[in-house]
Each structure stands twice: as structure tokens, then as C-alpha cells.
Design a protein around this nucleic acid. Sequence first.
DNA 1: CATTCGTGGTT
DNA 2: TAACCAAGAAT
Length: 350
Amino acid sequence: MRDISLQLLAWYDANAREMPWRVPPNARQNGTLPDPYAVWMSEVMLQQTTVAAVREYHNKFMALWPSVHDMAAADDADVMAAWAGLGYYARARNLLKCARAVVADHGGVFPADYAVLLTLPGIGPYTAAAIASIAFDLPETVVDGNVERVMARLFDIHDPLPKSKPVLTARAKQLTPDTRPGDYAQAVMDLGATICTPRNPSCGACPWQQPCAANAAGTAAELPKKTPKKKTPTRHGIAYVVQRADGALLLETRPASGLLGGMLGWPGSEWGDAPEPAPPLDANWQTLNEQARHTFTHFHLRLTVMVAKVDARAQARRGSFVAAPDFDAGALPTAMRKVFDIAAPTLRNT
DNA sequence: CATTCGTGGTT
DNA sequence: TAACCAAGAAT
């Protein structure tokens, strides 16, 4: 059984993808391991996020906060602003919590232990196994979407996810070798990302073509099965963009938990079927023709954009004015940035 | 155990 | 255009 793991490692030696946070297989076999901080940063960013999207964010974060001590001492608003656009903002909040826990409780050193890693904020079963194996070369088994798909095909398992996850996890553990577990973890995920893809898998180029049960049965492309999900509803809301005579814009920091938690945004109504107007101040509001459309994981959002210009003495019922030189649309989550993009021409022309 | 939580690319 | 998908975690 284990010899097929070695086959995969041989494939990885020749086909490993290059990533800024990764130590290539030849260097790893010479005894070089990656910086656990960089690995942790990458794995948190990679949760439900593509490698392509993570690259520049990882570079930026490593430049701004090169060590876990820097991250622990970082200003929360700076980290949230730097994370803007990457999504799943609870990850950024947990990034700070985790860094501070590592410094406060673990002497500023990431623990080389799966069970201890699992106790840290934002580190679940996948990420704990990824850090343990990739950063410390411990024989832990990563089970992400790639591994689930590869195992479902390798063993021709037709039970739908997520119910089948325990079986897929057990299979993945059976295959994890004692030698080079870190490279092996990265190898299975690379295989899933480049060969054993969700659609149109390149079975002809797969190092596991021979042992693959789904390839033999001709079922690879239809695996893994998944329980169908319900369709996403549409919610509506109103976003208010206020500009003061000196150019300052009215923004508010959203509540620390929930959707876009801790992020900067425009004051607005609740989001639902028929939102009640909730202007942050009394003004001569102008409703723009174009709505901001944005899709979250579980609903579509259509925001009506309302714009007002107010004088320098204006007082808002909520939010706070941000001076024009301090405003950075890049610090907004995408839904809010779309609102700004729609409002910007009107702001300039009035 | 089901739901909540982003975003951009692909089909 | 709508659905699907990506190195999941927290509740």
C-alpha cells in the first residue's frame, strides 16, 4: 500500500509547484524546513482560497509583519485593511488572536504538535495537520478538498460528501508515509490541484493512474459526489455615501462578529427583502441608478447607493468621518468597494 | 450536524 | 447568467 505513496513523492520531486512560502523538495531533502510562521500564514490564507489569490497577500503580509512577534504587536485595523479583498474576514481576526496566543502562551514559537496547534484560534484539523507536516515534518495527514477528491477517486467511493468525510480521512491516513510526510502532504494537494482536478481530470498524466479504482471503473469525473445545496436567495439593502465639504467620507467599522465583521463599510440599512431606510444623517439624498451587486457564499446582495454632500459642521448619528487623504478604497471589503466605485463619479461631479 | 462566512475565476 | 469551485473554521 505504501509504495504508491512513494510513487507520488517521486512525481512531486519532478512536478512540485513553486510557491513563495514553500521549500522545494530537493532543499527539504537536504534538511531545510520552511519558517513555521510563513507556513501558518499561507495555510490560513489558503483556507477556501486559491493559490493565485493568496500569493500577493502572503508577500504583503510577510513584508509588513515578518515575524509572529510583529503580527502579535500589529494594529488590528491595519491587519483588517491589509486583508481587505481576500474574504472570510474571521481569518484575519483569528490571525491576530493566534499570533498573540503564540507569543503569550508559547514563547513566540509555533508548537510542533498537532493537538496543541489545534487549540489555537483559526487553526482547525486541516491547518493543524498542514503546519505539523509541512513546517515540522511530523507524520500528520492533511485532508482538504483536494485530498477528499483524490481519495474518493483512488478508492472509487460513491458516498456523498460531507457524510463520507470520515471514510476519506481514514483512507488518507493509511497512505501517509513515515518518511517525508511534509512533502507527501504537499504532493497530494498538488496532485489534486493540477491532475486530479474537479472537472476533466488528466488521468493519463496521473502517477496514480494504475492503482486508481475510479480510473478503472471510468467514474473519476463524477467523483466525489456531494449532497446538493439549496440555491442562494437575494437580499436587498441601502448604502449611504456621505461626503463632507472638506472631502471627508462617513464610514463605520462593522461589528466584530458576523458578515464582514471588523471591516470598514458604509453606513446602511439592514439587508433583507424590503429594507427600511436608515440614513446616518439628514441631508438631501440622491439615489443613484446603478445598484451594487455582490454575491456572498449564501446570498446575493443588491445595494441601492444613496449619495449626499454635507457641510463641514455636519454631525452623523453613527459612523465617523475619514479625512480624504486617509481614505483608501483598497481597505474596504469588495461589496463596499463596489458601492464606492458607483458613487465616486457623482462625488467628483458635485 | 447544519449554517455562517468572501471572493474571483471557470464553465 | 447561474452554478460551481478553492490548501476550512467556528458556532
